[in-house]
Nucleic acid binder design. Structure first.
Lengths: 378, 378
DNA sequence: CATGCATGTGACAACGTTGTCCAGGGCCTA
DNA sequence: TAGGCCCTGGACAACGTTGTCACATGCATG
């Protein structure tokens, strides 16, 4: 049973910009000296119970030397009895390090980011740090809000998958010592560490693969043009086409939202008419999923290569350019902790290779007259 | 360029149990009064620069009333000029609330948990709280370590997908006021809020569906028996079989690791011999993925119903019992914040329904002699 | 003109921890 | 026995913020 007189303390919107005005809950706490943390015991309480000094408790809790076994035992017993747990908030305030890092990504529900976040967490764990997550939902304002909230918590470091294109707001933070690494996309208008996949090279290789199968009319469906990876992959597409001296009809290229509706419309438009494309290159995992659904409903086979691997893509025979989200995350986190450990070189740019995985959909040749006839005869 | 005199401060393993001894980095910080947070300005600095009192700065930063527009402007300018950002560590210490919650789950890289975590984050955001994530890797010790680390940070609340089966270690924390909600599996040996999917009912319905197609020999492959959902789903399987007066041969039931090797071996063993099962029920998304791969390699079709939906399952025609991870997370988070807002009822148990989604694999009938003959003639 | 009151502002203590410094006691050596 | 050392333990300040309270104003009221 809980205490019915419990004072409800509304959580305030923490971590807002210092410029925030208004919206302050009045009389958040009417009583003088409201017991905090539900009246948790402090080191002082432990010290009193054990009959020792405050600092001695601190020494025991932190395993510092200079405490006799007997004293330590008494302190331990008091800790047990009171259910004491060190308040890391106070510790952080005193020590100046929070042993936590912040990760801002687009959407944790996207299967690309789960493994990335997990990899970051794993490295953080190795360094004794906790991970605070935030999803920007591809919204620059929300990204900034999250980043600054993390900074207000005084995270030791930040890993950011940028949604916005201007990160100058981070300059004072970086100057103040917050290590920052960008992942998947470079920072905008500031010079900072970044870990990327080779979007350009991957897309170029994927499209070249389609060309090698004999395709000459290839469609490209990608994410919104303000996203760095989207334009890089498009650049790779154009490079591959140029390498093979193939013209690009602008109706074959479509950048925009990755919503199923938009992608479906784009794909169907490219696949219609006499000049229809015979192959598709999809710019990320979201696009690929919809593209596969569209192609599954068609009579004649259409080749497809997708950027990003997808679960069960092997069973569906989807050829992909695979990038390793976990490696991306691990690399970024390791770079971050190197910075935190004092490596202060000039900003690094790490680019990870991609791999073409052939599973069938990318090896479908363009239809020939003979094949068309064959199909029609069935 | 590396600054050779830079003091490297090793991050210590924060949030360890207070019983931790030894392993203390000596002389972590040799200098007296090492500047902290990279010498960030404080409210005191802002006050000095603006020529006002400390408290006035606090008032401006927090949008409290009682500041003349002129004073506010001077303070704002000083804040801008110094790049001041409120230190929420200190704020937390003073206010006693951290506006953050901790989420301990099994593995963020699992596509089941990504959406769950995102849903929790979204609710937290609505309440102005940040989310700290931790993956237990299905290890009870690691779960406890994470939970206690979160408690040391004084998170306001905890959402836990338990790996362990004894959560009495949480009793002092809960008593001290940390709101706690368990998700996906109930807590062990303590009475606490819990949000579950109807594993029993879902599995029962899925197996009943297979029985309705005419199957009489049905295999069940599930997760490790110490996991609550695994045994609940097995119970549902047995109930459905019993409902139809069908015997269960114990060789048709296999609980254990969800590693592809183990699942593959289990499936192949059930599918071999004269008494082979004609249908499989897979106990979670990991099992289903491997089961689909096994079945894809077989000549004769075998029916399959899986617990949990999977991306692209529609294209592969996989019939599933779907549970909504996001709803699970959202429900748990909302319950948590109701508790934080003072709702102090007895522990709640919420059970969310599951949905059978027919896509083909679950509607495959058992082979008849005629069908077998037909297949062999091809 | 004295009083009351509202309003803006700042001094101060406290939150719980850790770093520094000093004191007392035991033991060894000269 | 005096002097030095090491070992253990505790007093105290500081980290940066916020809640409380008191002090000045200025204005309206008696």
């Amino acid at each position: 049973m809980l205490d019915a007189t419990h004072t409800v303390m509304a959580l305030d919107r923490a971590g807002r910009l210092p410029t925030t005005t208004g919206l302050c809950t009045v009389a958040e706490n009417a009583r003088h000296h409201e017991p905090r943390y539900g009246n948790r015991p402090t080191m002082k309480d432990v010290a009193a119970r054990a009959g020792v000094g405050l600092k001695t408790v601190s020494r025991v809790v932190n395993g510092e030397p200079g405490v006799t076994p007997d004293t330590e035992r008494r302190v331990q017993e008091a800790i047990e009895a009171l259910g004491f747990r060190r308040n890391d908030s106070a510790r952080v305030l005193r020590k100046g390090r929070t042993a936590s890092i912040g990760l801002v990504l687009e959407d944790l529900a996207d299967p690309f980011y789960g493994p990335l976040s997990r990899a970051v967490e794993e490295v953080a764990r190795e360094h004794g740090a906790l991970l605070i997550n935030g999803s920007s939902a591809e919204d620059a304002d929300r990204e900034q809000e999250l980043v600054l909230a993390f900074c207000a918590r005084r995270v030791d470091g930040l890993i950011v998958i940028p949604a916005g294109s201007d990160h100058r707001y981070l300059e004072p933070e970086i100057k103040a010592g917050v290590a920052t690494v960008f992942v998947d996309r470079p920072a905008g208008r500031i010079d900072a560490d970044v870990v990327l996949s080779d979007s350009f090279g991957g897309a170029r290789a994927g499209v070249a693969h389609l060309i090698a199968q004999g395709h000459r009319r290839i469609g490209f469906i990608g994410d919104q043009p303000r996203i760095h990876t989207a334009t890089e992959r498009l650049r790779g597409y154009r490079a591959a086409m140029a390498d093979a001296d193939l013209p690009v009809d602008e109706s074959w290229v479509s950048l925009g939202s990755t919503s199923p509706e938009r992608v479906r419309a784009a794909a169907e438009s490219m696949l219609a008419g006499p000049d229809a494309v015979t192959a598709l290159f999809s710019g990320n995992n979201r696009v690929t999923v919809t593209a596969v659904r569209v192609l599954a409903g068609r009579e004649s086979p259409v080749a497809l290569v997708g950027f990003d691997d997808i679960e069960l893509a092997d069973l569906l025979g989807i050829t992909v350019i695979s990038q390793d989200a976990a490696t991306l995350g691990r690399t970024a986190a390791e770079l971050l902790f190197r910075r935190l450990d004092g490596a202060d070189e000039t900003p690094a740019r790490v680019e990870l290779p991609t791999v073409l995985i052939q599973r069938g959909s990318g090896e479908i040749p363009p239809p020939t007259d003979a094949q068309s006839a064959d199909r029609q005869s069935r």
